[in-house]
Design a protein around this nucleic acid. Structure first.
Lengths: 233, 233
DNA sequence: CTTCCTCCGATACGATGTATTGGTCGATAC
DNA sequence: GTATCGACCAATACATCGTATCGGAGGAAG
């Protein structure tokens, strides 16, 4: 059931007043339990029932702190944004750091790749991250700040989704990284053998193969170079 | 139950031989029905039961053509990639066209934004798209082709996810676009009023606001400019 | 002490993905 | 032509999910 005071989002709606005894529960503990579950067993393992069991509590207890499972996911995402803080001097270092710390957060929480970019992020931690970025971008033309940050965010979102998707496929296929990169799996080998995709096959066969780190950084460099050219104008 | 011939992926596993009469079913019809459902009612409306009902068929019939719901989603994604074909001369036009046609496909199929980048795309249509891109990038240094295409793909994935997420939030809040962009909703207004995010508030209040088209193109230009600088080296 | 009101937890419901099973129908062997 | 077999379709079944509902317990107010 939706909260009666309409227009209030999870983050600004107060938690229910702490009851004297019944059980030490809080949004923070709920979110922590959900994140623990997701880290270990993946996002599919995050059900309200399992989170509740993790906390020795009936499933419906959670609805005092949350209206919807989606709200729990929003809280989880915002918690991860709390781990993302860009550091460095100058726009380039700041943006690079923003991208790299986000990517590292995804490595700590693979499920984050499934959620990132899926909803507008307006939680306190996401906003604090935005504040940190924007205020570190002091020297940049005001009208360019948002587009530039949006572009970097977009690149990071897509890049980490691709990276995690590929990592999972590798893991599922049980091949080691070298094999996977060389052949992209027996399926692709067979498919390329049909000769239907000659240009693609040539690139896969003959071109240099970058690992995930290198690919991410190279793409990021493209983007930052382009941004730099624009800022210098 | 998984297919017995191990290592075969959906796309290369033959469909069951067309039976004389029982019912005119095919992977193509199943995927078309699923896409129709997703286009009209969103991805949540795509359940095996609903797809089956759409085709006047029992739910379990589908398992003759599909092993898993995830495979159906893969087929849907690949079908959309069939609509994406870059056109134009020169690397810049090709990459820009790749990005724009992908974005247009997302506008036709909003659910595509939920799936894109979530799994490695190795279906025939995705590969054909890749072949078209790579072969149109003839003049480009072989070792740079993959990183460049990967970077553009990453940017597009993240950008359209953000765009669709915001569009849905607007739609849900019932505000028109002007209002949303000016205030980003009453929640943000109240939050900024607390003074906790001064730099962010300033940008949102004072900076120029671009619409979705402009934001997408500007970010894409950053990236293409950076790629161009590298290619010229 | 009684009354009321709040809130917790058990129960319940409809939906989902998919395993299982039983029946039917076509093809094959004699 | 008949009997046997094997494949495939659909109905049933099951575990799990998000969440609505409701009954009772327990603290607050009179």
């Amino acid at each position: 059931m939706r909260c009666i005071v309409t227009g209030m989002v999870v983050w600004e709606r107060p938690e229910p007043p702490t009851r004297p005894a019944p059980s030490p529960l809080s949004r923070e503990r709920i979110v922590a339990a959900a994140i623990r579950l997701a880290d270990v067993h993946g996002l599919d393992a995050v059900s309200l029932r399992k989170v509740a069991t993790e906390l020795d509590v009936g499933p419906m207890r959670l609805y005092g702190y949350i209206d919807t499972k989606d709200e729990l996911l929003d809280l989880m995402v915002d918690a991860v944004y709390g781990e993302v803080r860009p550091v460095g001097d100058g726009w380039r270092e700041v943006l690079r750091s923003l991208a790299e710390t986000t990517r590292r957060a995804v490595h700590r929480h693979e499920w984050f790749a499934d959620l990132i970019g899926g909803r507008p992020q307006l939680g306190p931690n996401a906003l604090a991250r935005g504040e940190a970025v924007v205020s570190a971008l002091g020297g940049v033309d005001l009208d360019l700040v948002m587009p530039v940050v949006a572009a970097v965010d977009a690149y990071v979102i897509g890049a980490v989704r691709r990276e995690i998707a590929e990592r999972r496929a590798e893991r599922a296929s049980g091949m080691d990284e070298r094999q996977w990169q060389a052949a992209s799996g027996p399926y692709l080998e067979r498919t390329f053998a049909t000769g239907r995709f000659p240009a693609l096959a040539e690139v896969v066969r003959d071109a240099a193969h970058l690992d995930a780190d290198e690919t991410f950084r190279l793409g990021l460099d493209f983007l930052l170079d382009g941004i730099g050219a624009r800022l210098r104008r």
